[in-house]
Amino acid sequence: MPPVLAKLSIEHLCVAFNDEMPAIGDVSLQVADGEFVAIVGPSGCGKSTLLKVVAGLQAARSGTVKVARAAPSDPEPKIGFMFQRDTLLPWATVTSNISVGCELSGLPKEKHAERIASLISLVRLQGYENHYPAALSGGMRQRVSLARLLAFEPDIYLMDEPFGALDYQTKIVMGRELLRIWEASRRSIVFVTHDIEEAVALADRVIVMGARPGRIVASHDVVFERPRDPRSLRGDPRFGALVQTIWSELAIAD
């Protein structure tokens, strides 16, 4: 049997901002094609930095990062990044913001309208096509961000606390929405969060990171069957046990 192809492969990555203690010291991580990996850790453990290195926004001191291309003919792997802030263009309507993803994906122009329309219904923003971001709630703005990301059709999704700025209820709803959308396409996701419950509810695997220097402390396979409902999952005793375990690991790591 051939080995499972890694979508993202990080080998002995080390990142340092100056000559101080490295922000990330020797991290290796493989993400399989279609795998949903969540990374939790205390602030300052380098989990966001790790994503920035993969996205090419931050240089590494040593080590390698490889993202597999979808097809051998593609010139570059397409990396989709989502920030905690919505980073929408305030002067562009919902439609126009989503079209940024289409435009940068290389999709032929005549197919843009169709993809945008289907994404707007996918993230349930029908009726808001011509609204500007300022007229939308935080949750709706992140839906637009998500639709823009989906329009780009990345090989891998890097999500840096995408729902971290939302209120608790909206965060749960957005997590469920993300799973619903992810089930349909099954692209690899690396999802950084400080919310352990969110990580366990969403991911196939939870990576626990520790600080000074940033390193991987533990890795847990989450075995709950798919498709999941993150809300009902929270009542499951296995869910609580795993959350407890990760909590104690974080306490040790700190």
Binding site: A55, G56, K78, L104
Partner: peptide, 22 residues
Amino acid sequence: DRDPIDLMRTMGASNRYIIRRV
């Protein structure tokens, strides 16, 4: 705002595109 520009850069946007869009 640097964030949308960074985001577009990760998506492979050209300078021209960022000038026009941002």
